[in-house]
C-alpha cells in the first residue's frame, strides 16, 4: 500500500507535464471551416449601418426644418398682432 502512493503522485506529475504549454507550432495551409470568421454578420452590419446613418440624418433634418418653419409661423403671427394693436413691442427670439 505504501508503494502505491508514490506511484500515484508520479503518474499525476507526468499527466501535469503532458498538459504544459505548446512547445511548437505546426504549419497548415488552411484553417478548418469551423474556425473561420463568418462574413455574413459583417455584411449585414455594413448594410444596417448605411440605413441607420441615412434614417438618423433625414430625421434630424426633418426635425430642424419643422422647428424653423414653426418659428417662422409664430414670428409671422407676432408681427401681425403688434401691427394691429400698435406698439406691443418687438417679438422675442425663443
Amino acid at each position: 500500500m505504501k508503494i502505491i502512493y508514490p506511484i500515484v503522485v508520479l503518474l499525476m506529475n507526468v499527466a501535469a507535464l503532458a498538459q504544459q504549454g505548446q512547445s511548437e507550432f505546426q504549419p497548415v495551409t488552411e484553417i478548418p471551416a469551423s474556425e473561420q470568421m463568418p462574413s455574413a454578420p459583417l455584411v449585414i452590419a455594413a448594410y444596417a449601418f448605411v440605413w441607420l446613418a441615412f434614417v438618423v440624418y433625414v430625421w434630424t433634418m426633418w426635425r430642424k426644418l419643422g422647428k424653423v418653419e414653426q418659428e417662422l409661423q409664430t414670428l409671422a403671427t407676432q408681427i401681425v398682432k403688434p401691427r394691429s394693436t400698435q406698439g406691443e413691442g418687438t417679438p422675442k427670439r425663443p
Partner: peptide
C-alpha cells in the same frame, strides 16, 4: 432649404427689431 429658412428667420427678427 433648412439654411434658407434659418436665414429668412434671422432677417425677419432683424426687421422686427
Amino acid at each position: 432649404s433648412v439654411e434658407q429658412q434659418r436665414a429668412l428667420l434671422d432677417q425677419l427678427y432683424l426687421e422686427s427689431e
